[in-house]
């Protein structure tokens, strides 16, 4: 589904190489986790894949369902099935959460040449999905993320993911700022979206999120590269021993 080959990325503004040859394949139906110390390039990878400005790909490739995504605009990648759940979801005052989400759903449908979703269908669907995530009607009406708690923001990210039904979901440090209950709720939301035709890339510093969202494959990233790949047990190893040994091998 997602194929990354020898990806090299530097900052656009300065001469600093962040990713130094990442190779990674995420298959449909699988959950891949990327763990690594701060500054290893995990978040950069998520930004580069979703099309944020400020990075320059100097070598390598990334394809989603066979399509080269690196030359696409962020909105084109979204329409192609890419979704990034932000570590710090952005507050947008003056734009209602529901209005925003409906625009997003219909913009993606339009880009794919599909029919727009009627407002009654949209309402029905968003209400059902919001309920599962314990998002009340007030949160749907309020401006996007404005005045939301850390947990509410992350739940809102998952609600967007559920409504947009992407092919590949990238979760960037989704556990940051969450207490145990909130993490459980968010994880349940994510698990409900697991399906044979959807891939997940879960980026996290800590193992604890992976207790709730069980990965099929775990990668350790260090200094801009994947330095080790293994099963779920690899996450436990990190939990017990830290990242030091992987940094040495890097």
């Amino acid at each position: 589904m997602l194929e990354i080959k020898n990806l090299h990325v530097k900052l656009e503004e300065e001469d600093k190489q962040i990713l130094k040859g990442v190779d990674l394949t995420v298959e449909a139906g699988k959950v891949h986790a990327i763990m690594g110390p701060n500054g290893s390039g995990k978040s950069t990878l998520s930004y580069v894949l979703s099309g944020r400005e400020g990075y320059e790909v100097t070598d390598g490739s990334a394809t989603l369902l066979g399509e080269d995504i690196l030359d696409l605009e962020p909105e084109e990648r979204a329409a192609a099935g890419m979704f990034l759940a932000f570590q710090y979801p952005v507050e947008i005052p003056g734009v209602g959460n529901m209005t925003f989400l409906r625009s997003a759903v219909n913009a993606q449908r339009k880009a794919r040449g599909e029919e727009e979703m009627s407002s009654s269908d949209f309402l029905k669907e968003i209400r059902a999905k919001a309920k599962e995530l314990q998002i009340d009607a007030d949160m749907l009406k309020r401006p996007v993320n404005v005045g939301f708690s850390g947990g509410e923001k992350k739940r809102n990210e998952i609600l967007q993911m559920a409504m947009l039904a992407p092919k590949l979901c990238i979760l960037d440090e989704t556990d940051s700022g969450l207490d145990v209950d909130a993490m459980k709720l968010v994880s349940e939301g994510v698990n409900a979206l697991r399906s044979p035709d959807r891939g997940f890339l879960v980026i996290t510093h800590y193992q604890r999120l992976l207790d709730h969202i069980k990965p099929d494959v775990v990668h350790i990233m260090s200094d801009g590269k994947i330095v080790k790949t293994g099963g779920p047990e690899l996450a436990l190893e990190v939990e017990n021993n830290g990242y030091a040994e992987f940094q040495e091998t890097a």
Binding site: S50, R52, E53, E75, A78, F100, A104
Partner: peptide, 20 residues
Amino acid sequence: FYLRSRGIPEGEATDYLTLA
């Protein structure tokens, strides 16, 4: 970037932020 990453094209996203 947040709006565009959800599939909203740049022009429309700019309008949203202008309204905001």
